Computed example of a mutant assay.
Amino acid sequence: MSDVPEDAPEHCPGTQSEAAGKESACAGCPNQSICASGVTRQVDPAIEAIADRMRLVKHKILVMSGKGGVGKSTVSATLARALAERNPDKQVAVLDVDICGPSQPRMMGAENEQVHQSANGWSPIFIEDNLSLMSIGFLLGGRDDAVIWRGPRKNGMIKQFLKDVDWGELDYLIIDTPPGTSDEHISIVQYLLQASYVDGAILVTTPQEVSLLDVRKEVNFCRKTKVPIMGVVENMSAFVCPCCQTESTIFPATTGGARKMCEEMEMTFLGSIPLDPRVAQAADQGKSFLMEHADSPAATAFLDLAQKVTVACEKV
């Protein structure tokens, strides 16, 4: 029987190995210090606290991308708004675990807000009556402050977000992750899978092959860590002129784009979102693009995505 834990990162040497906790593959693993000390691996006591919080969250959705610049945070924020606006009786929240580049406070129009602590933990910032947000951006001294942390401190912050934020009862928790498959991804997946479950991951890409290459790595990460893949969103698939509605290709799908990749890798294609400059403008201003430009093709695409996510969650 293998001594490699099921939730271990790739190339884990195993808990009984002399190299346990000392290999490069161990960097960022929440269990690294325990393995390195030679003490038998134990369940993190924080898991129970995380489980208590997550019992009140019906659906947990990770939004991931293989590379930066594909609009993952924009998709996370707008999807959350779409779910909240389509279902006024549902409670929706966004957890921003992009520790080094927290952009959700700006996109949600809550950049100057501060987190308050009560007897029940940290209170998230409410954007609407049924839409809340938590981000490290609320905990920094200034908007230009850099987070220069090593893996263990990032892991600690993510753990604190999961066990100490008083979300209350939630229908949807959208988790905005940083690009890649690094410390933050390993931590959030391990903690959630040990304490609860994940409905699935939404992978965001753009049509060109240079983006799809990195998304394929994200697919393999999800499959190795046993995170269900809800589907793939092709963002900025084409430019739609806000004035004449003429569509132009900006990022050519030289290898068939996300739809072709989904066919090859047996995944669900969740749809294409056209490039509309007003999406970025709304994000910069902290406004809801869906309310400001409800008749745009991009708004229709986001609402369609929210509908597909709702249906997918109901099947879990």
Rank of each mutant, 00 (worst) to 15 (best):
V4K: 13
P5F: 08
A8M: 08
H11M: 12
G14E: 06
G21W: 00
E23R: 08
E23G: 13
C26F: 09
G28C: 12
T40R: 14
R41L: 14
Q42V: 15
A46D: 14
A49R: 14
R53H: 05
R53W: 05
R55D: 14
L56G: 08
L56H: 13
V57F: 02
K58R: 15
L62G: 00
L62Y: 03
M64R: 10
M64Q: 06
G66Q: 07
G69N: 06
K72H: 04
S73R: 00
S73A: 05
V75P: 01
L79I: 08
A84M: 01
N87C: 06
K90F: 03
V94C: 03
G101W: 07
P105Y: 07
M107D: 01
M108S: 00
Q114W: 00
N120E: 14
N120A: 11
P124R: 03
F126L: 15
S132F: 05
G137V: 11
G137Y: 01
G137R: 00
F138D: 06
L139I: 09
G141R: 11
V147A: 15
V147R: 01
I148Y: 09
I148D: 12
G151N: 02
L162E: 01
W167V: 02
L170T: 08
L173H: 03
P179H: 05
T181P: 09
D183L: 04
H185Y: 12
I186P: 11
I188L: 00
L192S: 03
L193E: 01
I202G: 06
I202T: 05
T205G: 02
T205M: 07
S211K: 00
L212K: 06
L212Y: 04
V215P: 00
V219Y: 09
F221M: 03
F221D: 04
K224R: 13
K226G: 09
I229M: 00
F239N: 07
Q245I: 11
T246N: 15
E247Y: 11
E247S: 12
T254H: 07
G256H: 11
K260E: 12
E263R: 15
E264A: 12
T268N: 13
F269G: 14
I273R: 01
R278M: 00
V279C: 05
V279I: 07
D284P: 07
G286E: 00
L290S: 03
M291Q: 14
P297K: 06
D304K: 15
A306V: 10
T310G: 15
K315R: 13
